[in-house]
């Protein structure tokens, strides 16, 4: 038996990987419905903010997207640790979709934040510590993709990107805590007390709180989860094709 035939093929069974992933499709439909409900709640159910008006509603997505990003990226850290520990490529395969989804949600967080800042702070962008650190966080994960693309040997690639995914999460933590340790930020804290100089903070009424919690759950659990599984499916399938190709090449 040759070494290639020994290379374990990724499993193509289970509810996620079979050719018609019924369960995954069901979850996707549920997630789409929940997302729409969340949007409707944010737009119509939640009470209007007195000082900021309608533009405040973007916060329901802005905050939830960051929660989703930190969740997805957090899973990438867990997957990376498991990869370095167990050396099973499946953990690395899980890490890629997590970083990609986390990256996309972080971008969404940044863009919605800019849209909100235009009327409230009167500028698209300011070099506020929170904004700076979330931009840095996005660049860190952009560097992750560069690193991944720059290593040819798959084993080395898995090992080094796992190490980098662990390190990169420090920027997520910094982004999260920075408005709590840096007094000179103008960014409001939605959860917990805002810094003194914060401009554009607001108190949540009960309907706003309901909309916020609902969107939070949708964006930090359902959406990343469904996206990660679809992306993971692609990753496993392309791995499968690679193994088959190597087998054909050997014969």
């Amino acid at each position: 038996m040759s070494a290639v035939t020994k290379t374990p093929l990724p499993k193509l069974s289970g509810p996620w990987m079979r050719s018609r992933p019924t369960l995954l499709i069901v979850f996707t439909v549920i997630t789409v419905i929940l997302t729409v409900i969340g949007l409707l709640m944010a737009l119509f159910y939640a009470g209007q903010d007195i000082t900021q008006g309608e533009v405040q509603r973007i916060f329901y997505l802005h905050v939830s997207a960051f929660a989703g990003a930190s969740m997805a990226l957090g899973v990438s850290v867990i997957a990376s640790v498991l990869y370095l520990w167990k050396r099973d490529p499946k953990w690395d395969r899980l890490s890629i979709p997590c970083v990609e989804v986390g990256f996309a949600l972080a971008l969404m967080n940044l863009i919605t934040g800019m849209v909100w800042a235009r009327p409230i702070w009167n500028t698209w962008w300011t070099w506020d510590p929170r904004l700076t650190s979330s931009a840095i966080m996005i660049l860190t994960y952009a560097a992750y993709f560069m690193l991944r693309a720059g290593i040819e040997n798959p084993e080395t690639r898995r090992r080094l990107t796992s190490v980098y995914a662990i390190l990169a999460y420090i920027t997520v933590i910094v982004t999260f805590v920075i408005i709590r340790i840096r007094p000179d930020t103008i960014h409001p804290a939605v959860i917990g007390p805002s810094p003194q100089n914060a401009e554009g903070g607001f108190e949540l009424s009960s309907s706003m709180l309901a909309a916020m919690s609902f969107n939070m759950v949708v964006w930090s659990v359902f959406i990343p989860w469904v996206l990660i599984w679809w992306r993971l499916r692609i990753e496993v399938l392309s791995e499968y094709v690679n193994v088959l190709r190597a087998k054909v090449a050997e014969q």
Partner: peptide, 26 residues
């Protein structure tokens, strides 16, 4: 840590600032 890492990549010297600067910003 990162130089030991980028030394194993194709781009080597170019990659170190890209992976190191974001982590050094804090």
């Amino acid at each position: 840590l990162l130089a030991a890492m980028t030394a194993q990549t194709r781009a080597r010297e170019t990659l170190l600032p890209i992976v190191m600067l974001p982590l050094a910003v804090p």
